[in-house]
């Protein structure tokens, strides 16, 4: 292939209908309380890992549900499983089990 001194850029758009939603389906099946998330960000706001890394529980689960899963393995690896997020969640989402289910789905356990 020829080089012209510039690159064709990757499209950042979330192509929802082309993405793989099976991982999200697995997690939601095993932890349906995640359906109740209202994206308030209480989880990430109180998360010790979010303070020192790019990991945010809120954003991670949202991207997963859009099928954007390429950084998921790295993201969940940041979680300290401290459980503060489950304590602050106003909707009662079992955030720790969400992390656990993602780890199971990604064969991280």
């Amino acid at each position: 292939m020829n080089s012209f001194g510039f690159e064709i850029q990757k499209d950042n758009t979330i192509e929802y209908d082309k993405n793989d939603l099976s991982l999200a389906a697995f997690v939601l099946k095993h932890e349906p309380s995640l359906y109740n998330c209202i994206q308030c960000g209480s989880c990430s706001g109180s998360c010790p890992a979010s303070a020192i890394s790019s990991y945010q529980f809120r954003k991670m689960q949202l991207l997963m549900r859009r099928g954007e899963i390429k950084n998921l393995r790295e993201d969940v690896a940041h979680c300290l499983l401290c459980g503060k997020c489950i304590l602050v969640c106003p909707r009662g989402v079992n955030t720790r089990n969400v992390i656990r289910q993602i780890r199971i789905a990604l064969n991280m356990n």
């Binding site: 012209f4 510039f6 064709i8 850029q9």
Partner: peptide, 14 residues
């Protein structure tokens, strides 16, 4: 700017 042409071609490609 030549180095920026990736912007232009990416839009056309879409």
């Amino acid at each position: 700017i030549q180095a920026n042409r990736g912007y232009s071609i990416s839009c056309s490609k879409r």
